[in-house]
Design a protein around this nucleic acid. Sequence first.
DNA 1: AAAATTTTCAACCGCAGAGAC
DNA 2: AGTCTCTGCGGTTGAAAATTT
Length: 357
Amino acid sequence: MGGGRLPCCDKSKVKRGPWSPSEDIKLVAFIQKHGHPNWRKLPKQAGLLRCGKSCRLRWINYLRPDLKRGNFTPQEEHSIIRLHATFGNKWSKIASHLPGRTDNEIKNVWNTYLKKRSLQRLKMANINTTDDTPNSSSSNISNSDQNIHNEEPANQEISSSHDQQLTPVIEYPKVIEVAAIGPIPVDDIIQKPLAPSASTLSSINSTQEYKAGSNCYDINPTCYNDKIINNIDIKFPDNLVSYSEDELWNMVVESPRPPINLDHRHHDVNYESQKSGLEKMEAVEYWVRLLEDELGLDHEKDSIANITTGTTSQQINQNHYQTMSNKMDQEETEIWCKISDQISPMWPTFAHSFDLY
DNA sequence: AAAATTTTCAACCGCAGAGAC
DNA sequence: AGTCTCTGCGGTTGAAAATTT
């Protein structure tokens, strides 16, 4: 092909940089309704001034409903270190073993601090074994890699079963209620030890999963924190493209329902808030808070909460949120201490990575 | 308190492979 | 078989946030 590679889009005519909430909503709404049979055509069809690649990336790395959010757990970090030793920089391969995590996210975590930690650990292991093995450091690394490789399937099972045994069972609501935009029926929530890979789920095939005639996109099944959540249906108005930024934002703000992407902590706090019988008004604020977190709009917390509820109960809710958050941190730490105690003897090379928490 | 430095991570870029024609 | 288009992947960038000086 002469003349070099054709650009994927006219860069002078597309918007670049961070995505706005309204762009996110437009993209999610479009994909729910039509799927994404063709990324290149999608921006125009969805009314977005974005490159198709940019849309795809935004969906896969941020907007997919099956994404886990928040910090990586010690177990996940453990897995990344082991998987990286096995696969190298095959981020999508590694991501396929970590449900709800994206290759980009894993790559970032690795490059920011797991790489350093892994190297430190290998160094320590090298120092500790110098007396036993007169080999060079490279041979030590190879040995540990070999161990990791051999242990791979066994460890996978061990960690999964421990996870099942030690993670508190959370009763998720059958239907995630609330919403101005529409209901979110959660038809089925099934525990599954090894969920489908994130990368697999990222490639939603529209012909398979777009429910013809149902006017909504069926993400099925959606894996979430070792749970499978089927049939999350969110209905947006048909003429979404014609809505202004403010209208779209108000549409969401006025809706007292959980955001599209819920991490396990959000689920748990939401559940707790129901259990403790928080008043609906507080629930509204709670939902707004979650959505703000989701869209990174912390700075608007006060104004939006007040607009939405017209009250000052935000402080109460803030305290509740903080309490629940602390509770979850504490519970999570306890769980991982238990797991650490049981797993450490099996992974001598990396056993002490839990110490860093 | 301000400036400098480091860290984080969302987004971009270009290449390679698969599949359609 | 060759060409072209599209998607997915891994490396890289750079703005924002966090930390240090």
